[in-house]
Design a protein around this nucleic acid. Sequence first.
DNA 1: ATGAAAGCGCTAACAA
DNA 2: TTGTTAGCGCTTTCAT
Lengths: 343, 343
Amino acid sequence: MKKGHQVTMKEIAKKLGVSVSTVSRALKDSPELHPETKKRIVEMAKSMNYQYNLLAQSLRISKSKVLGVIVPELTSHFFSSNISGIQDTAYKRGYNIMICQSNESFEQEKANVRTLVSSQVDGLLISLSRETKNYEHLMELYNREIPFIMFDRVTEDIPVSKVTVDDAHGAYLAVKHLLEQGCKKVAYFSGPEDLYISKKRKEGYLKALSEFGIPASESKVYMTDLTSEKNREVTLAMLASEDRPDGIFAMIDPLAIDIMMVLKEQGLKIPEEIALAGFTNNPTSAVIEPSLTTVSQPGYEMGQIAANHLLDQLDDLVPDEPQSFVLLTTLVPRNSSKKKPNA
Amino acid sequence: MKKGHQVTMKEIAKKLGVSVSTVSRALKDSPELHPETKKRIVEMAKSMNYQYNLLAQSLRISKSKVLGVIVPELTSHFFSSNISGIQDTAYKRGYNIMICQSNESFEQEKANVRTLVSSQVDGLLISLSRETKNYEHLMELYNREIPFIMFDRVTEDIPVSKVTVDDAHGAYLAVKHLLEQGCKKVAYFSGPEDLYISKKRKEGYLKALSEFGIPASESKVYMTDLTSEKNREVTLAMLASEDRPDGIFAMIDPLAIDIMMVLKEQGLKIPEEIALAGFTNNPTSAVIEPSLTTVSQPGYEMGQIAANHLLDQLDDLVPDEPQSFVLLTTLVPRNSSKKKPNA
DNA sequence: ATGAAAGCGCTAACAA
DNA sequence: TTGTTAGCGCTTTCAT
């Protein structure tokens, strides 16, 4: 299937007996043009159904007005919120976005970076895959001075701007809340150890424990690769453990929900026998039963801020020095943790 | 912030004392080249950190290898599944995707079409906004012979390929199931009347009723604009109605879930007093309580099929005639409707 | 097996 | 106020 012919400036010029530059100027609404000529050209363009060729412009001005976005997966509500924020913001500022998903694969992520760079995106917004522990591909972007920033799944090893939430504090709020509800033995269910958010949220967990004078124990930290199978397996292992926890803080909501399913299936009362809190505030968490206590993470706003900052950098509206944006999280107490009626 | 310099073929050519055409041929692995020259060039390119400029290629060959995608919203699980399928497929076949969201606005959708066309996408995949009742912008694409196809939210007024599910049949399955469970008065909760899926699913609803010898009544059809407020309002109106339904088929899961919330809040037993079924099979539906009976709609596969078909058209692998892909849906019976233990 | 040259559609410095 | 010209980075036909 071949595309139909597209009208070019050249054709408009010919029809009107003017030069292409004049057409270009008229269509750009340049002031140094006779209003009459401008009018004729604009009208002719409209009548010929002229459509600007952004590709040609991009090549000429060495700017594509396209932002590349790489996320681990498109179907997670959190990431699609991010993208939504990025897309709306970019669009408002005259940019389009090109999207890739790494599917949590390091190799795929590297390939994504490559194609987006080849496509001449003006900048990139990246959220790292679970597998990414080596940052050479990012270092290369950095060395080649291709503007990019990271969000949510970031690394501190690369000196670029980052947009995250106060992961440690959010986790602290959740765990503190569980302790305030009377939990004595709170477990932390964590994703892969080297994930930035796994670490940060653990910090908050430990801080809350220590504040309540509870000695931390590695036996209360449960690690999963975040697949449903593993989540289930680890939860069952926890239930079978000698010193069964009476409260759980899960690193992300989907994990918390998997845990909840197992607890319910095993006939445990939530929150009476075991309280539960997550992190993200996915839509599901509000409607599940019992409703899930969680920490809200403003995905859409993160996307907006990330995109605006990157575009500000591109437009030299802000200094080039990397900046860190840390968004606030808030605790959303719900029934999965409320042991006390007044809480 | 300015981007760093990018190496071009010209520079490689100069360094090696060959012509640009030779470099181009080497990098394309053209057979009519001395293997030795080819090797030298490829190695030089690597050592100079050469990155292909897809933009320049696109302009030259009049193909961007980019697909444009327009969806009503990015954050819905169904649409992000579609996009995921489209992205994976496109990527595998050497294409990138550019994404826009219409935010359910007709004006925005028209603007999206315009920018994507300006960006010289090779083809478009479109799912219509709720507001779209006028198809001139699509007709223009059609007349300008820009390949595009529609998915999920389609219109029959434009002769292009479409990817949908058997909406009517899926709805029929759901309603039949409710009737088999003993419901006597089944209501249909519908989105905006002129939406393709509203109409199709109503067809299925009516068919099931007639098969069970139940006279259809417009008073059992409840219309909402799908906002949570309106959903709630309409549900309350239904509960207050004289002849209260004992079963509800909701056009999409999010609507079903809003309805469920109101029913639970009003103290109604689901499914005993009122049974409920949705359509889409969102992840939430499986974990909510009671779990929601629904019709599964393969979003990812729809995206794959849509993208593959469009690319097949672009590559002349299939005839240009519009084709309709109707994917099968299956009933997913869950607790929100199971009145009989053996069902 | 390789090079020269034209050109994709546009912009912008320079000329007139 | 408008035109001429060169060129963005690449591909491809036509020579050699």
